[in-house]
Design a protein around this nucleic acid. Structure first.
Lengths: 338, 338
DNA sequence: ACATGAATTGAAAACGATTTGGCTAGCGAG
DNA sequence: CTCGCTAGCCAAATCGTTTTCAATTCATGT
């Protein structure tokens, strides 16, 4: 059913029908009601592509996805959906190319020029992320989930990674630990730098020098968690506590600790970052895992909301949010053993 | 830069330019080359929305996402991206409403009518899934990832859940286990029924009656894996082996076994289904996990490919694929202890 | 020399909506 | 009675492409 046909059935002009449905003021309430009712009854629905062409709006928000199938991604998108479904805005997944490649830039350029999305949400930027500069230059509204130091205006939402890790580390120090290892995320991303900063500043405030041999970074996988933790613990001067970057890393760490005949919470304290997944909870691990916690789903919802604001013309300069991170203490952390 | 303007720069008509770029045969090779080259140089790119309106193609494939942020979803989409990016086809995420609700149906109807996608991929159907009937009735090309008994033509790709679980169960029986528990997925979905069928048929072929007390179902979470396994093992007649539905369930099962002072692979054998995630591998668990394995990422790639075929007019009746599932034996399975 | 046909190219009509700029009717004020 | 104003509606232009139909050129066979 097309507008013209639908309008004819109603004995109205396309103009009036369009206006009635889009809520313009110059149509009488009584007609509006009739149009709305008949639209449902006859099943008339404006063709999105026509609307998009005419209005220039895409009715969709793009979200950049890494090619590695990161486990937090579905959770973030589920959060986005919560906000975007009622808004009748689509979620378009934009698979990332190799970030160091020129192709990545070309991809964004094409995406913007093709007017497929009204805004873009991107994750895990680097301090000097060229994508941010590009999106700004192209005039595309975009929201950065994470932070960057780059000198162009951009909207962002981030969690307080530095503070979270600082508190986690400080807590371990309070418990008497002095040799504390850290398993960070992929080097280069700002969040990883912030976490390292938090770690270092906590140590520094107690006059402890960070041992480079106790810092490792890599993807958030069970395997790397295991390998790094094992390597740490097999040193001649092993750490008594480990700060890990994700739930998956934590699984590996637990495994490594156990594999050496040690006990988490007794021989080795562990704190990890928990993005709050429905399928794997820190509380349920054995022993239960002390964690810095921040909901990935909530972040998705809020990011979607902020992206909508950008589309509506709010200045990127007004959109900067740092979310606090909870530190939840459970059984995996305990006083240092002597 | 619009077509008209671009064409004028070239001293050609919009018609010819459009044809040159879309690869129609009636334009001379020499002009085509020139057009292609200049398009890059001047940065001309057809406006997607205009193309979509005119051609009626959306250039996007929709994939239905559960609201629970299932952990396999990102992996599946990453697989889709592999096939769809070179094809310049978008991935649209369609958040599911409550499946029992009428809203779910309304959602699909709107989606189809708005012509936002050229095809839809849906997961985990039920045997009588009304969504399939609806999509068929609406004439929208769609691919079911999973299987359904519903009596309308539909394309599908599924793994051999029944065979996988039958083999897993049979292997446990071969090892001497006779009390074997099963932790299944959410009841209702076909894959869960198939798995139960495989489980029962393996038992039946050895003349063993399935004990309803050893069958549990629910979401694939660590927590439910733990709770179910614990409940099984605390019975007066505990099972000596457990078949679990996912990696997360397996984590919970391992935890439950350990929490009772038992040992996986010795006191209790465990087999789980592994969708192959980059962040959590069965091989790395301790003890390493015997698993029925099938790559979720590969499924995503293939599903995308099949969806493209549907769009190109291949009949749904010709698209039915059952993928075999590997059974990988590792340390978590061993002979029954007496 | 002329018709025929193949190879290129263009003009103009869609695609299905939104929106600008009237138009009409009805009402109250002057 | 006329004018001006408002409320409500409509005709037609427009968004940026693709595609139908027709026109032009040029070589070829007769």
């Amino acid at each position: 059913m097309k507008l013209k046909e639908f309008a004819k059935q109603l004995g109205l002009s396309p103009t009036t029908v369009s206006r009635a449905l889009s809520g313009y003021p110059e149509v009488s309430e009584i007609t509006r009601a009739r149009v709305a009712e008949e639209a449902v009854r006859l099943g008339y629905r404006p063709n999105v592509n026509a609307v998009r062409l005419k209005t220039g709006r895409a009715g969709a928000i793009g979200v950049v996805m890494g090619r590695a199938g990161e486990f937090h991604f579905a959770e973030f998108m589920a959060g986005m959906a919560e906000r975007l479904v009622p808004e009748d805005t689509d979620i378009l997944v934009i698979p990332m190319a190799d970030p160091d490649d020129d192709k990545e830039m070309e991809l964004y350029r094409r995406l913007v020029e093709s007017q497929r999305v009204d805004a873009i949400i991107m994750h895990s930027p680097r301090p000097d992320d060229a994508r941010i500069a590009l999106l700004h230059a192209l005039g595309m509204p975009f929201l950065v989930h994470g932070r960057s130091d780059i000198d162009v205006p951009h909207a962002w939402l981030d969690i307080d990674n530095e503070g979270a890790v600082r508190r986690a580390t400080a807590h371990l120090l309070d418990l008497g630990h002095t040799r504390i290892a850290m398993i960070n995320g992929r080097p280069g991303a700002t969040y990883a730098l912030h976490r390292e900063k938090g770690y270092r500043s906590a140590l520094a405030s107690r006059g402890i020098a960070a041992d480079p041999g106790l810092i490792a970074s890599g993807n958030f996988t069970d395997e790397l968690g295991f390998r790094f933790a094992k390597a740490f613990l097999e040193r001649s001067d092993p750490p008594t506590a480990i700060v890990a970057g994700s739930m998956m890393s934590a699984l590996g760490v637990y495994r490594a600790v156990r594999s050496l005949g040690l006990q988490v919470g007794m021989d080795v304290s562990v704190i990890a970052h928990d993005d709050v997944f429905p399928y794997l909870s820190a509380d349920n691990m054995a022993p239960s895992l002390s964690a810095t916690r921040s909901s990935m789903r909530a972040a998705g919802t809020r990011c979607a909301d902020l992206a909508l604001q950008l589309i509506r013309g709010v200045s990127p300069l007004e959109i900067h949010e740092v979310w606090p991170v909870e530190l939840i203490l459970r059984e995996s952390t305990g006083p240092v053993r002597r």
